[in-house]
């Protein structure tokens, strides 16, 4: 039994760290613009599909991964410039619809470029399972975990240690005040979209060897990433990471110990309970309503 639980935890943390990376992207964009970007999952898909396409075209894996990430960053910047910027100040529901439209559009592009088949990426360092205590892990899972730690650390350092990062955070607290102290809010917005798209793309490339990818792969990941960001308290990057890990472990434990059919219902029931008890997520700021 103990051995089983170790396996459930190992699985949960691996799956959870992909949710965490996607959730981190949600949090960054929300911080900078108050917009929840429902196309975040599509960035993940785009990164994976571009890397697979470039690899198939004969590029070496590291180069394909870098190029795929940069192309996805470009897609993120285009989205910001042509869909988000023109609709500044629109109500929450309108921006939700715009990003949902963008998600459908990106899926449509992927469908035309790569068809409907599932594609996979070869694992970075082989397929031989590793034994850790009672659990077995794929080497690729270690890549996912390690890169998640690294990326989260980098984002954390960037936000708290660099001037640019602090400027980005300043925008999230009070945009008008940030503008007044000389921060170019527009540039910060683009930075946030580019960063989120890049993070999404990297997440996609890391998990593609385990989960495969297709033009529709972003829907589920986007949903889970959104849940992670909300549970953690939207706008709190580290909260999103914690939310993602929590959600992953919860799903795996409920699939293993309670019911595999109802595991998604259990995970969302947990999300609801969190919100009922803490209406702004686990680590969200309590904001007073402005009158």
């Amino acid at each position: 039994m103990f051995e089983q639980i170790i396996q459930f935890l190992a699985t949960g943390i691996t799956v959870g760290s992909t949710y965490a990376l996607v959730g981190l992207g949600f949090a960054l964009i929300y911080n900078a613009s108050d917009v929840v970007n429902f196309a975040q999952g599509e960035f993940v898909m785009l990164g994976a599909m571009l890397a697979i396409a470039l690899l198939t075209a004969g590029w070496p894996l590291p180069l394909a991964a870098i190029a795929a990430t940069l192309l996805t960053v470009l897609a993120g910047l285009l989205l910001e410039r042509f869909a988000i910027e023109p609709s500044a100040g629109a109500p929450v529901v309108s921006t939700i619809i715009i990003t949902i439209g963008a998600a459908i559009f990106l899926r449509g592009v992927a469908l035309l470029l790569w068809g409907k088949d599932f594609h996979s990426l070869p694992p970075f360092s082989g397929d031989a399972p590793l034994r850790l205590g009672g659990a077995t892990l794929l080497p690729q899972s270690l890549w996912v975990l390690g890169m998640t730690v690294l990326l989260v650390g980098l984002v954390h350092g960037f936000l708290n240690r660099t001037l640019l990062g602090k400027a980005l955070l300043a925008c999230s607290f009070n945009r008008a005040a940030a503008q007044l102290v000389g921060i170019n809010v527009k540039v910060m917005l683009r930075l946030a979209y580019g960063l989120s798209a890049g993070l999404g793309a990297l997440a996609g490339i890391l998990i593609a060897p385990i989960t495969f990818s297709s033009y529709e792969a972003g829907i589920m990941l986007g949903l889970k990433g959104f849940s992670a960001a909300i549970v953690g308290g939207i706008g709190n990057p580290m909260g999103a990471v914690a939310g993602g890990l929590l959600l992953g472990v919860l799903e795996s434990l409920s699939a293993g110990l309670i019911s595999s059919g109802y595991k998604d219902a259990i995970a969302f029931l947990f999300v609801l309970m969190v919100l009922f008890l803490r209406p702004t997520g686990l680590f969200g700021h309590q904001v007073a309503e402005r009158v």
Partner: peptide
């Protein structure tokens, strides 16, 4: 309905998914 904005969106979305899972399972 005590929740606001995106938190409300999340909660209603979660409710919808739970009902859907029950329909399937």
């Amino acid at each position: 309905l005590r929740l606001h904005g995106h938190y409300l969106a999340m909660a209603t979305l979660g409710f919808g998914i739970i009902i859907h899972v029950i329909m399937v399972q």
